[in-house]
């Protein structure tokens, strides 16, 4: 199974470029994301993680490079197009409405209706199926207002919302940044279960402990270039940190002969 998915990445980016005015933020980035695997996207502030993610999600178009999804080259012009492909992003601020309950939030903007009327029964049933499918047992009721939830529970709701739509790729932006120890463990195990259920997951994180714990695959960005994308089992904590801070680690990474990478 891993070999098979290895051969065909769900998402494959080749030579992605993106500039904002005179600033070249992404300089020929390659990235492979596989179904059933957690791909950690790491890199220092300003390495281009957010730009890469927003491009994948269709917030803005890349200037150059190939965007290949399920083996086909695609043009993503807006977030809807990304959603239609099965790509969902859970942003760091979660984008939940505190005054609505869990079901309402999961279906926000894509409510199920019978004629004019909201189909609350079906929405509640589907929300519960999704949460049960993810083995979420931390919610008291799907009719709880989000304002009454803890940070970890909110993260859970946001992730569940992302997988509700038969999505194939879920992008998580710093899901554990604001959480305590116990809740971080809960969310990480949820991330693991997403991948085990066959989804492709991109996890952005600054926390190396989290990355080493849950990632199958680590992609390190360094100053707008992909320093290296490696199997998590092949590298040590220290090597990843070197990739992030210097762009290379021994044999791995951007070698000085490239010229630009040796800063």
């Amino acid at each position: 199974m891993p070999q098979e998915s290895k051969a065909n990445p769900l998402l494959s980016l080749r030579g992605i470029r993106k500039s904002f005015g005179a600033v070249e933020v992404l300089r020929g980035v390659d990235l492979n994301v596989y179904s059933g695997k957690v791909t950690a996207l790491v890199g220092d502030n300003g390495a281009g993680k957010s730009t890469l993610i927003k491009g994948i999600a269709g917030i803005y178009p890349f200037d150059g490079g190939d965007y290949v999804f399920e083996g086909e080259s695609v043009q993503i012009s807006d977030p809807r197009a990304a959603n239609d492909l099965g790509i969902e992003v859970v942003y760091q601020d979660l984008a939940l409405c505190d005054n609505l309950d869990v079901v309402h939030n999961m279906f926000l903007g894509r409510e199920e209706k019978r004629g004019l009327i909201l189909n609350e029964d079906d929405m509640e049933r589907r929300a519960r199926e999704t949460l049960d499918g993810l083995s979420v047992r931390t919610l008291k009721s799907v009719r709880q207002q989000v304002s009454s939830l803890s940070g970890g529970q909110r993260q859970t709701v946001a992730i569940a919302r992302a997988v509700l739509w038969n999505s194939k790729l879920v992008i998580l932006d710093e899901p554990t940044a604001a959480l305590g120890v116990a809740q971080t463990a809960q969310v990480l195990s949820l991330v693991r279960r997403l991948a085990d259920a066959g989804l492709a997951v991109i996890l952005i994180s600054h926390n190396m402990v989290d990355v080493m714990e849950v990632a199958d695959n680590i992609a390190a960005l360094y100053l707008g270039q992909m320093a290296a994308q490696v199997e998590a089992s092949d590298v040590s904590h220290g090597e990843v940190v070197e990739l992030i801070t210097a762009g290379r680690s021994g044999e791995l990474g951007i070698q000085p002969k490239n010229g630009e990478g040796a800063a």
């Binding site: 984008a95 409405c97 505190d98 005054n99 309402h104 926000l108 903007g109």
Partner: peptide, 24 residues
């Protein structure tokens, strides 16, 4: 309480940015 329009009113009042990102 029962229409999508009404739900979106609550969403905009609760978190306009979240509503915008949800396509409202």
């Amino acid at each position: 309480a029962r229409t999508g329009f009404g739900r979106h009113i609550y969403a905009v009042g609760g978190n306009a940015e979240a509503a915008r990102r949800a396509g409202i």
